[in-house]
């Protein structure tokens, strides 16, 4: 196994001007299918890597074999981020298998981990094996990634229904919301502004805070200072 701790700060990653809010040791990202979990996970890992020497992304997606973080293994290595994913991904035995080194997530207490969980309640089932350990350690955040532009989560109530199913399957209650509302390449400031009250309503219904609102980095400057906890996102090509 390559020792990723020896990497210095990767070149090309600019320091954020405003320090990012504190994150717990483990950040779990769950949400409706296609809400943008993987993209948020990768961007978050890159941001965490600026602060912490040892950062990992754990791909627990057992639902969709079409987009695999393993496709970007080289990119992760360049950034000094460890990738925990199934050895069988992208092979002829691409079964819904969990990674063999999955327990590094809970056993290696010096590691900052972003866990990318598969979509919907079925995807969250994969958490079952490690949920008790995560709950016991109590150093985690369980974030709901939501997107008001997705067809089955357009209203706050529909969104909450999906999130409740995920909680029930994964066994870990949500602690915060990532408002990742976007229309792909057609995302403009209005799409983000319009989504603020949607995210707040979900927040009220679930009694958990909106911990960040993600925006494509191209329009980040237009929204800076106008929405709290903005998080600039770089779109990953194939993840």
């Amino acid at each position: 196994m390559k020792d990723f701790t020896r990497f210095s700060r990767p070149a090309g990653i600019a320091k954020q001007k405003k320090p990012m809010r504190d994150f717990k040791r483990i950040t779990l990202l769950c949400g409706h299918y296609g809400s943008g979990k993987t993209n948020v996970a990768v961007n978050l890992a890159v941001a965490l890597r600026e602060r912490y020497p040892r950062v990992a992304v754990a791909d627990l997606d057992i639902v969709n074999p079409y987009f695999r973080s393993k496709d970007s293994r080289g990119q992760f290595e360049d950034l000094g981020i460890r990738l925990i994913c199934s050895e069988y991904a992208n092979t002829n035995v691409d079964l819904p298998a969990l990674p063999q080194d999955m327990y590094a997530v809970t056993d290696d207490k010096d590691l900052r981990v972003v866990i990318d969980v598969g979509g919907d309640d079925r995807g969250a089932l994969a958490l079952g094996r490690i949920a008790p350990r995560i709950l016991e350690e109590k150093d985690y955040e369980m974030l709901a990634v939501i997107n008001a532009s997705r067809p089955l989560t357009r209203t706050p109530q529909d969104t909450v229904d999906v999130l409740r199913e995920i909680e029930a399957a994964g066994g870990i209650p949500f602690t915060g919301i990532v408002n990742n509302t976007n229309l792909g390449r057609e995302t403009d400031p209005d799409v983000i502004f319009d989504s603020v009250s949607y995210a707040e309503t979900v927040s009220n219904l679930m009694s958990i805070p909106v911990v960040m609102t993600s925006v494509p980095k191209e329009i980040f400057p237009k929204l800076q200072g106008k929405i709290e906890n903005l998080f600039p996102l770089e779109l990953q090509k194939k993840l």
């Binding site: 532009s149 067809p151 976007n182 057609e186 209005d190």
Partner: peptide, 12 residues
């Protein structure tokens, strides 16, 4: 307007 659109997978 753009907000009338939804972000969909082709299959969806």
């Amino acid at each position: 307007t753009v907000s009338d659109k939804v972000l969909m997978k082709g299959n969806e």
